[in-house]
Amino acid sequence: MMDDDTPHTAPRQGGTGPADLWDFTPVPEPTDPAEQDALTEARIQQDLVAPEDMDLAPMGVAAPVPEEYFERFADVLPRSILYTWRRLGFEGFGNGLFWITDPIAWAPVVHEWLNPVQDQLPFTDTFHCLARNAMGYMFLWGEDSGDCLQIDPIYNKIEFNRLTRHTRGQTEARERAGRVMFGGKAFNYAHEPEDASERALPPQALTRLGPVSSDQVYGFILPPALGGPISVDNLRITDAHTYLTLQAQQSDITISDPVGTNWGQIAPIIRADPATSPLSQASES
Rank of each mutant, 00 (worst) to 15 (best):
S256L: 12
C148I: 01
E172R: 09
S280R: 13
T6F: 13
I255T: 01
E172A: 15
M1R: 10
D75E: 09
A267H: 11
G17H: 09
P33R: 05
D273E: 06
L244Y: 07
E52Y: 14
S280W: 10
L97M: 03
T9R: 15
A107S: 12
V110C: 06
A107R: 15
L209P: 01
W113S: 04
S280A: 14
W263S: 08
V217P: 00
A248N: 10
G17C: 07
E35G: 05
D252R: 15
L82S: 11
E29P: 02
I230A: 06
V27I: 15
A107T: 10
F139I: 00
E52Q: 15
P28S: 06
V217W: 04
E175Y: 15
L88C: 02
A62Q: 04
L279V: 09
P18S: 13
L222R: 13
G178H: 13
S214H: 08
A267M: 11
R162I: 14
S213R: 05
Q120E: 15
T242M: 05
Q281T: 13
Q204P: 05
C148D: 01
R132V: 00
V180N: 07
I237H: 06
Y69E: 05
G169V: 07
Q170H: 12
E192V: 03
G219L: 09
N234Q: 08
T31F: 10
R87F: 06
S251Q: 15
I81Q: 04
V180S: 09
G136D: 05
Q216E: 12
V217C: 04
R72V: 10
P278G: 04
A282C: 07
G96Y: 02
R86S: 02
L21E: 14
P78Q: 06
Q249P: 04
G183D: 02
S214K: 06
W85I: 00
C129K: 10
D119I: 08
T238D: 09
F160D: 00
R132F: 04
G60R: 03
T207S: 14
S285F: 13
L88V: 02
L209S: 04
V76N: 06
P33G: 02
P51Y: 10
P103Q: 11
N262P: 03
V212G: 03
K157P: 03
T126S: 12
P193Q: 08
I151M: 03
T101Q: 03
G260K: 08
I221E: 12
L121Q: 11
Y155N: 15
F98I: 00
G184Q: 06
S213D: 06
L114P: 01
V65N: 03
A248H: 09
W99Q: 00
D125P: 11
H191E: 10
R168V: 07
